[in-house]
């Protein structure tokens, strides 16, 4: 059973300037307990994908269509917003990028975690006491437990802190505690460490990974930073301009990237012991989401682009072992590199 199964997800944003095609039919499958990373430049539709999975995109401004949207085997495609409220936070939770803006600035962080327990009726006392006061007490007890779990010392004290009084790493830990609060099947982490220093980044990722392994939670990690992905993810989806251009296990992608875009992404990270003298960079920038190029979206930036790439979009070709790639010339490129 898959923790998440998305088939043919499409999201558009109609604007005055034209229709923004943010996500153009992507499929994602995440096995229970595994971590899948969605990697791509900013603006490629990663975050929109995550919000669409949570059904947090509203109409307007977005229009979402999807063939299949299943969480842990249950279909959530047809759920109304009311029904979704019971799912969000409990079965699927989200960690946002910037913890400072993602936390309500005028509310104590502990109270903000309490809300989850209260909303999902998880704080009904074990001894059968269900009064309002008891529920709140129980929620607080659980919140402090959750805060301790993510490595926050003095959890009782931090419970009463306001977001601006905490450090960046601490805030991100609060968000993680919030996400794991109800022990959900799936956690979507949208660039969880981008706003942090590298050292803090590592700590926060450790906490995240640790909890994920311990609880056997599935994780959908959204990032532009391949170096994070290496240690965290089991599977990688590379996204470009709203389409998936390559999919494979972490090992496969890092050892043997097939799509020129993936190669470019890998070429721009530094590794210890790397002999390369300079970084390979992808020229130019992401095309406008309203006027995407014809043919393969990547062809204007691709050094291997041929005539066919300019007119026809390549299919997402399935290779052995679940590997997929969307490129006309991947075989030639591979052979050329080896030969």
């Amino acid at each position: 059973m898959n923790a998440l199964e998305v088939k043919n997800l499409k999201v558009i944003f109609p604007t005055e300037m034209g229709i923004v095609r943010a996500v153009e039919g992507i499929d994602i499958e995440i096995e229970q307990g595994k971590c899948a990373a969605i990697v791509g430049e900013s603006g490629c539709g990663k975050s929109v994908t995550s919000l669409a999975v949570m059904k947090l995109l509203s109409t307007p401004p977005a229009i979402v269509r999807v063939d299949k949207l299943e969480l842990g085997g249950t279909d959530i495609k047809g759920l109304t917003d009311k029904q979704m409220q019971k799912v969000r936070g409990k079965d699927v939770a989200m960690i946002f990028q910037d913890a400072l803006t993602a936390l309500n600035p005028v509310m104590q962080v502990g109270k903000q975690i309490d809300e989850i327990f209260l909303a999902h009726n998880l704080s009904d006392g074990e001894n059968g006491k269900t009064g309002r006061v008891n529920r709140k007490k129980e929620a607080k007890r659980r919140t402090i437990e959750a805060l301790k779990l993510v490595g926050i010392s003095d959890a009782e004290l931090r419970y009463k802190a306001y977001p601006h009084q905490l450090s960046g790493g601490m805030r991100q830990r609060v968000l993680i505690a919030m996400a794991f609060a109800c022990n959900p099947n799936l956690i979507i982490a949208d660039e969880p460490t981008t706003a942090l220093d590298v050292t803090i980044q590592a700590q926060v990722l450790d906490v995240l990974k640790d909890l994920q392994r311990k609880r056997n939670t599935s994780l959908m990690l959204i990032t532009h930073d391949l170096s994070i992905v290496m240690n965290m993810a089991d599977e990688i989806y590379v996204m470009y301009c709203g389409k998936i251009v390559e999919r494979g296990t972490t090992r496969e992608i890092f050892k043997d990237p097939l799509h020129p875009y993936t190669m470019g992404l890998l070429g721009s990270i530094a590794r210890i012991g790397d002999a390369k003298s300079r970084f390979v960079q992808i020229p130019s920038s992401l095309p406008s989401p309203i006027h995407k190029p014809s043919g393969c979206y990547f062809h204007p930036r691709c050094q291997y682009a041929g005539e066919r790439c300019k007119t026809e979009m390549p299919p997402l070709e399935k290779l052995e072992g679940g590997r997929c790639v969307r490129c006309w010339n991947y075989k030639e490129i591979k052979n050329g590199k080896n030969g």
């Binding site: 947090l56 969000r88 989200m94 993602a102 309500n104 509310m107 909303a119």
Partner: peptide, 24 residues
């Protein structure tokens, strides 16, 4: 963003509006 967080937590619309939006 924190309104989005509140929704992602599964709070009801009333909770989001009265507890978070209007409060701020």
């Amino acid at each position: 963003d924190f309104i989005l967080t509140a929704k992602a937590k599964g709070l009801s619309n009333n909770k989001v509006i009265y507890g978070h939006t209007l409060r701020n």
